[in-house]
Design a protein around this nucleic acid. Structure first.
Lengths: 200, 200, 200, 200
DNA sequence: AATGAATGAGAATTCATTCAT
DNA sequence: GATGAATGAATTCTCATTCAT
């Protein structure tokens, strides 16, 4: 561990403190002083590592990108080897578990993406499209093999992702009616119906 | 138009100016001075009509509530008299047109509902549930008549509404690929598949 | 009753409303709108009768002056005809009752006299000196007749007035220990001792 | 002098500037900008040290408390060893000198105590009662030794303190008639008469 | 690397007062 | 005589950021 890793460590610290506050209070409602306070860190020290408030959002952005990327990378290979129907079920289930784990992140970006720089915004959208792509690929394989019947697999993939994200951004409604397992099970039915050749 | 209507007129003016800025820059990023400036109105004059910045959000909230309410009221009666499949198609199509017309509103509240007072938040959610209810009712009628096959019509209705709202909050993605008509058509297929007795 | 008396009536109304608020919240903490609100009167109407916020204080000032003046005038003649010791006791007792009745006024001016115009301030002080003069005259008569022994009757008179006013401005302390009657009785002893030829 | 003392120094500076303005114009008539202006200090810098306008009043409050406390502590021990009559004279004389030195403070709190928080108000009153207690103790010792004759020493002590404070809050009247020395001398006579066994 | 101090700009809100009707 | 509307100036306070040490 040399010079570099202290900086890295500090930035991780800042990210953790900021994330907690951003999620609790929103980006604009969180002041740089709040973040420094949360970490018992001097404001100027914080600036030493991040450059600006937007830089902190950048850290959080990067973290999110990694979390999404991790999901894509983890499952792409696995799914390729599965039969389409099973792959789709598996992917939906795993993605919903991911959404559950990172629900705060999901909600946060639905609300605060507008505070990103255009470049950051674009990057986030691209990452999201990667996730969509996973589902789209499965669907296309299913269509080719005659298992699925979908006219517009891109849109269907989009739908799937949004319906999973919904678990996060409608939690006030859904959590009082379903457990995650129930939600996975019910939503799976509807999603499969959307793409299957004939009813269920 | 008497005494009362100047105040009403002014409040409408404020609502328009504020809405435009809120949508462009977000609620927290819009200052009361910004709004007054946009309207060439003295800040104190503005306060004469609204009481507080949150009061302005309240105006916008009320406006939104009315817009949603109008939709519910307009279609509820009509839909009751239609055969379920037709009713669903018609409802989806009309709701998507509504989302197109009020896309800014839809996006805004997905992002800024957290700035509402608890009471206002609750009211908004209840209004949303009314919209969902419209779809749920159609689905239930369809299930009873054997036309539809859905295990959880509440969730299916939710899905439909979210997939329509998606036209607003994913416009950056969807608008470059579809016209509204295309989107209606494609999404309709997927939605119908989700609920129909046997594929499509 | 013609034009004039409406104005007079209005001003009385304003005085009452303002007095109540000034006493409750202090002069600077009371806004002209507060006063108008208290009276269900339009702000501009209020201004029609008073000219400025300070004008309202002027009304209150005038009212106070009259209240003090009334006391002076009421007792001066009576006291002249009494034997000094009895006169002093009677004057102290009556003045304390006056302080009790107008305690809010007394406290108010101890605190807010600084907001008066120099002329108003001077007038108030002169009125106060009239009250002091009542006591001073009694003392001087008593000294002449050999009943009292006071080197500096002006100061002694001052003391008496302040010790009576104290019932108002230290009420937080005194009211929890004494009733007005007890206070009159106890303070009388001390005051008489201050001026009597030989203790009590 | 280390890190800490700059903050302390600054706060002292602020206290001095604020005190001067508070006394000249009153608490509510003094704006935070006024204070910052008086000190050639940026408003935000001022806030860095005090937190709020009320915090500045708190500084002033604390300062006053210390000034009063200093008086109590300085004389309590000394007075205990003196014979009651001498002790009383000495205490009155010293307290009047204290009032002369801190007349602005005395006047200020008679007028502005209402702007304190309940807790601060209570603390101030308790401190005042300590001062009263000094006189009360002397009186009680005098009564026990047969030197003094007072029915209600608590009230007599109160009177003494108020008559001394009067030198501050009636200065507009008294200063044009007496020097401090004269006032001490004259008032002493009256006070001693109030408590002595038999005239003077 | 770390920090206390400093600051200009700007936030929401309130006020006493005026004026046209 | 009464009133709703209008306003410029001022209020307290917060913020992201920089700098000297």
């Amino acid at each position: 561990m040399g010079r570099k890793s202290l900086a890295t460590e500090r930035r991780k610290q800042i990210l953790r403190g900021a994330a907690s506050l951003f999620i609790r209070k929103g980006y604009l409602n969180t002041s740089v002083r709040d973040i420094a306070g949360e970490l018992d860190m001097n404001v100027a020290t914080l600036y030493h590592y991040v450059g600006s408030k937007n830089g902190i959002l950048g850290l959080f952005h990067e973290y999110t990108m990694n979390a999404i990327d991790f999901f894509s990378k983890k499952y792409r290979a696995v799914l390729e080897k599965m039969e389409p129907a099973r792959a789709l079920k598996y992917a939906v289930s795993e993605y919903l578990k991911w959404v559950e784990e990172y629900q705060d992140l999901t909600v946060f970006w639905y609300q605060e993406a507008k505070n990103l720089s255009p470049a950051q915004f674009k990057a986030l959208k691209m990452q999201e499209e990667c996730t969509i792509q996973i589902f789209q690929t499965i669907l296309e394989r299913g269509i080719k093999s005659g298992k699925f019947k979908v006219k517009d697999p891109a849109l269907a993939a989009n739908n799937i992702v949004v319906l999973c994200d919904m678990w996060a951004f409608r939690r006030w409604l859904l959590k009082e009616r379903y457990t995650l397992e129930q939600y996975i099970s019910e939503q799976m039915d509807l999603i499969m119906a959307q793409v299957s050749r004939s009813g269920r």
